[in-house]
Amino acid sequence: MSAQRRKKKTSQPHPQDELLRTDRLPHIWCPGCGIGTAFSCVITAIKKSEIPLDDIAMVSGIGCTGRMAGYIKLDSFHTTHGRAIPFATGLKLAHPEGSVIVTSGDGDLLAIGGNHFIHAARRNIDLTVICVNNFNYGMTGGQQAPSTPFGAKTTTSPIGSPEQPFNFCALAAACGAVYVARWTALHIRRLTVSITEAMKKPGFSFVEILSPCPTSFGRRNRIRNPLELVQFYHERSVIRNNIDPQEAALDFNNNLVVGKFVDTERPTFLDSYRLINRRELGDWPALEPKVPIPDKQVSG
């Protein structure tokens, strides 16, 4: 290819450049890592949501996925390990007009940050939480995570992990998330739709992305080639929308169930906070049914 032709090709900016800190590219993610694709889907979803860009913030913790916040040209906060959700909680509550996206890895969100995750879901804080699950701690070289499949090798489980992983989607749903979906990094259209829906949903929305980490996870588990790894996830994925996420545990020998599992409504923390403090709901246990409350709680 001639130099002249190359020059011509790079003259036009990439359509995602308007939301990228292009002066920071190339990003740190390895060749074949799925985080870049997930990031691209997040940017597309942000544009599709039509929420004014000044009103969107991205908050992340530590780890490979945590670096997303550093590349997006929006108000963006790269916080401490595991604390993206509580930081985002403060950000959202102090600026309720804003739309806050949390991007985080499996270890950051559900190991060190697990307690914050379950409580933010319980309170139904209006956040969009995007978890890129690559089944290990990629940035530190591939250690065992709460998502590492039973028996999979990591640097801290060199023979195989003796632990059972979480089913993140089931956990989110059990804690009260109003929107729960899971896709692989190859389901780009469905993933983008899910992120857009999650952003527009008032309340705690959770989108899990199964993403290849060829450098750390794939290499130790005999799928070193990025393409093979992304295909492995995609080929084993089975779309089953609206099923109970309890039934969607990841089974690498058979099916990786993906889909939109939960899409429901529940008053957010701020809705309830305002109503209660305006004394519009009366006293417990005979609360006014202005906020939908499960039958069990009312009947005592």
Partner: peptide, 15 residues
């Protein structure tokens, strides 16, 4: 636009 959406590096797009 599939290549554009899939590329993790923002290195390819179509018009």
């Amino acid at each position: 636009h599939f290549c554009e959406s899939l590329c993790p590096e923002f290195a390819i797009f179509s018009v």
